[in-house]
Design a protein around this nucleic acid. Structure first.
Lengths: 244, 244
DNA sequence: CGTACTGTTGACACAGCTCAAGACAAGTGG
DNA sequence: CCACTTGTCTTGAGCTGTGTCAACAGTACG
């Protein structure tokens, strides 16, 4: 039962002045403590498990929004595609995150599996019903939606006004806040460099170069392609805040 | 009583393949027809009128979100500021638009008056109450919030992946969709070049140059600084879609 | 008719993009 | 276990779109 949430490590400890303000205990917002227990159970009853393998599309922009999803395991990207292949990733969804709740009648973005993914799949109609029956559930989703809007607004600032170095720093801090350290100060990076680039509005080369720069500056280390060691989180924070 | 909505012109007629998909009859979503009448009346009762003059701040990011607002007249910008003065405008709010409904306990952006503005001001607590009493009101706000998310996702694509020319074209089409033609093919531009630049993640100079380019290409004319004549909307649409 | 503000245009610089080559990693089949 | 292939990542060299800086033109207002 939502085991993925239990094993998730706490978010960064020393993270006050993040470019992406920390929003309460986001990771434990749903599925823990007190009155929420009932809601979780109710949700659980109407959900079915679904596996999607790396790179596969979960749903496309414009598809009728018949289902909503919760990520149980793995990472999902929410993105838009242009006719000529340009892509913008609006958001990554990690274990515990809800995708496409209360989105209207059509999906307005594409969801793709970044890694092999396990999802809970909830028929939209039943979610709506549950929302009517249990105002607490509805409030929860509303809160999540607000956080989503808030995250997107922060990303707008990143894309519109930050330099490459600032963007990468913001990204690393976002990852840290969302999935936390794997161990000590090692950060798992589930997505490819291309995915990072398409999230930050950069090219893959610029992302690589910027990571190398940060390594040379002693702010991070790159033990391997899917892991990063954050040596100086404060430096990242002042970078992301533009104090440079 | 919400007179501003009545006089608002219909959105562009020939606007199917917009970069910002047209979302139903957005402008008439609230405050017209059928069962909505009651909701409008209920809202009206808890609202008070408020005037804010050009350039003044309505509320700041981080302020406790005590009130929600509806723009009756004028234009409002919703933005974020960085410590060093960089600014990103996430959205413009035009007459009929709701601002800061269901945003959580703190405003997560700053709202400033682009022009002299008339607002309706609703205490957040009473809005919440109304939402509980009248599910239809709540649903309405939810729909609006979805549109807001959708708009922001489109803007993410603009900021992350479009060229200056594409961004300006996207902006003009957004304006056309939101406020429509003043007369024939004349478009009112209530905001300054700086505001446009801060919305599109460009500099004021690049915005000017790009408008001049579009003029030279015969796509628009610039009768004066606060009005634009759209001579070739289709050209703008293919520009915004990246077919170039 | 100044004064202040906003918008426009030009010349140049540079951050980030493009193109290209090579390094590394993960399979896959023998 | 080793070739071999394939895909991803990294680095270099040069180019270009957009930013920066500066001058000037409109426009509004007292």
């Amino acid at each position: 039962m939502f085991a993925s949430e239990a094993v998730r490590p706490a978010a960064a400890s020393s993270s006050q002045p993040l470019a992406w303000p920390v929003i309460g205990t986001r990771r434990t917002m749903i599925g823990t403590s007190s009155g929420a227990e009932n809601d979780v159970r109710a949700l659980q009853q109407i959900g079915t498990k679904l596996r999607v393998s790396r790179g596969k599309t979960i749903f496309n922009e414009g598809d009728p929004a018949e289902n909503a999803y919760k990520v149980v395991n793995g990472t999902v990207r929410l993105c838009k595609h242009m006719a000529d292949g340009r892509r913008q990733i609006a958001q990554f969804a990690f274990p515990g995150d809800f995708v496409s709740f209360m989105e209207g009648s059509e999906h307005n973005f594409t969801a793709e599996a970044v890694t092999d993914v396990v999802l809970m799949c909830y028929p939209q109609r039943q979610i709506d019903q549950l929302g009517v029956q249990k105002p607490s559930v509805r409030d929860r989703f509303l809160t999540l939606m607000c956080q989503r809007v808030c995250d997107m607004q922060n990303l707008l600032m990143v894309l519109g006004r930050q330099t490459a170095k600032e963007r990468v720093a913001s990204f690393l801090l976002m990852l840290l806040e969302r999935i936390g350290f794997e161990e000590d100060d090692i950060l798992d990076v589930p997505m490819s460099r291309q995915d990072i680039a398409d999230n930050l509005g950069l090219t893959i080369e610029t992302v690589c170069r910027t990571l190398s720069d940060l390594k040379r500056a002693g702010v991070i280390d790159i033990p391997n392609q899917r892991q990063l060691q954050l040596l100086d989180v404060e430096a990242l924070q002042s970078l992301a805040a533009g104090e440079d």
